[in-house]
Nucleic acid binder design. Structure first.
Lengths: 208, 208, 208, 208
DNA sequence: CATGAATGAGAGTTCATTCAT
DNA sequence: GATGAATGAACTCTCATTCAT
């Protein structure tokens, strides 16, 4: 008889709590995510959750951290596809970011849409690490500028505005706020094309 | 002595409820906005609010509607500044949108950051009207394309992606998620420049 | 039909909450006094208590304050019986204090046996007023010393030690810690006689 | 290498549980003393405590018993200092009692300030033994009366009232309820002097 | 027009304790 | 001898809402 035969080997429940929290997050929304609901969903008492997490905050912070790591992986993988072509690399990063958001709405929600008050309690060291996700964008922009493909004054600022555009794109899609007559793929493609175009050279605006 | 001299004419209280709700929204955040708190803030009983609004949802929907109208006004005013120059008009629209978000964080929060579940209950007719705010962007893009300043396939789609970028920009700023080392104005200017550039002509990418 | 016909006129419930809290306090002990239990005892929902008291602390502080006032009354009445005879006055005060404690064990418990942590939150102004209860003892001692009946160095200190003795007496009786073979009245009389004797003149201890 | 060298010989953990409970008692207060906290403080699981104590009550009762024994030792030692001089002996006993209380607030709290409900469950045989601590006082009073130094009707009663006074003194000091302007030593000295004086001869109060 | 009274549901969290291993 | 897993009951407190007046 193995430990897993009763479905309750140690790390398993912790994992189930996290997963259930994620699912509830996307199903019921952050506002309706409560310890009791999580407990009910996994068929355990609310008390049990506290065996694995010190508090609701700790649980959420764990989810945020997981999401950050996962996003980090996705971005690294995307960047690795085009080590020598900054432009293609930036595009891959954008696409990877959007895909991550759409495929992991739960993670996305707590990572980027948590109200500032909750975020304040997020451990600073983890927060700093999260910021690193922007570096991939900045690096691609800098490299692109170096080889003359992009016009970029400050890569850090440019990376932030790129992020802003992508974030807006994902947010609206997740919130179902995009005109229903527009196909999501069209929306995404257009958004990314617009972002890419945003740093390209342009001929002087045609004088009248 | 008029009815309004003692501050209790009919419409007055309704107005105060709405205004107080807005202020609480920005001060305490959406999560902490409760009927009781609104009532306490205006010095009336919680019950009184129900004389003017059927439910908390109804109150929020009214606020959303007001915000949509206000945004509509701002965008119209911005568009009117440059009736003949689509490019300048688009830029003015972008700037107006961002300014609206930053100057009216309460409205912005409930208008664009409310969870979908709440939004589902938003009356469809009002919702449709809200969509119209996008039309100003679409019109400017279409006009710009007509005179050859922009490359735009579908103005409606392009308007949506513009909106997405602006929404991301405002969201990150309001949530205090932008790198503290970047000045807000720099961030905004860069974001808008990037959006504008996103639809300009470009020389064909140099083929290898 | 009068307001009280359904047993729920306004101030009535507040009064019942306080009284019920007092009774539970002596029946179940401070540790087991909960908002729910109070609510259950009066047949109302727990929420209702919060209509009359901001918090559990506020409720307890109200009880403490009431107790202090009541004790104050008792002491004043006792002192008034012997305005001109300090010795008799002191004795009356002692007796009044002990009687108050034994007749109002609930008040006594929260007034004098509340752990310091809870007491810290007691409003300072009310606390200061509570201290005044000691003044009656100090005054009697001072007056007695003035006419040569007592030997008292510092009336404030002496009042405190008198209070200590009485407090110990009441505490042990309430906690049922006095040897069951000793009649309570005997115990009380002896205790008070001992206190009174504590400040009288004494001939030099008889040399061998 | 002995069994105790790794800090885990049988009786050791039991001892550590008791000691830790005592320390937590004085640091955090009785209300905040929980099995979990004790376990955490010693680095063992909460379950382990139940290997040595049947329940929280049993643990507390053990502590109470220990305290009683310890107090007994202190009082015996004090009494032994003045075997032939009852008056000095009584004073030494008083001082020893107060010192014990102030130096062992943890013990004192559970020994004398535990609510009656908890006390009811205290095993009767241990309780009876606890009573013996009063005997030392009674003996000194009796001896003093025998040699004419004290006026004592019933030594058992007198011992109880002495105890009451001392208990009040210690209680107020521990609860920080003594006027901050009075130095603790002054308070203690005055209290003890008052107690001693309480049994001395007095000239008949001058009749008018 | 406005309120006071009242509530059920639910929030996060802590507790002493049990049981199988 | 010691533990990890688990729980039911309890805690204070907040919420949107209803109803009679």
């Amino acid at each position: 008889m193995t430990a897993s035969s009763n479905g309750s080997d140690p790390e398993n429940l912790r994992r189930r709590i996290l997963d259930t929290a994620r699912h509830l997050l996307v199903q019921e929304g952050y506002q309706n995510l409560s310890m009791r609901r999580i407990a009910d969903a996994i068929g355990y008492s609310a008390t049990s959750i506290y065996l694995y997490f010190d508090s609701k905050d700790a649980l959420l912070h764990t989810l945020i951290h997981e999401g950050m790591m996962r996003l980090h992986d996705r971005l690294e993988a995307a960047a690795a596809q085009h080590p020598d072509r900054p432009e293609a690399r930036l595009q891959a990063l954008c696409r990877a970011f959007v895909q991550f958001g759409l495929h992991n709405p739960e993670y996305y929600e707590i990572m980027f849409q948590l109200r500032p008050e909750r975020m304040e309690r997020y451990p600073p060291d983890k927060y700093r690490q999260a910021r690193k996700n922007l570096d991939a964008f900045a690096a691609a922009l800098k490299a692109g500028a170096a080889e003359g493909a992009f016009v970029v004054t400050d890569p850090r600022v440019a990376a932030s505005t790129v992020w802003a555009s992508l974030h807006g794109t994902v947010s609206l899609l997740l919130a179902d706020r995009v005109d229903a007559r527009i196909a999501p793929d069209t929306f995404i493609d257009t958004a990314i094309r617009q972002v890419m175009q945003g740093f390209r050279h342009t001929p002087a605006p045609s004088a009248p």
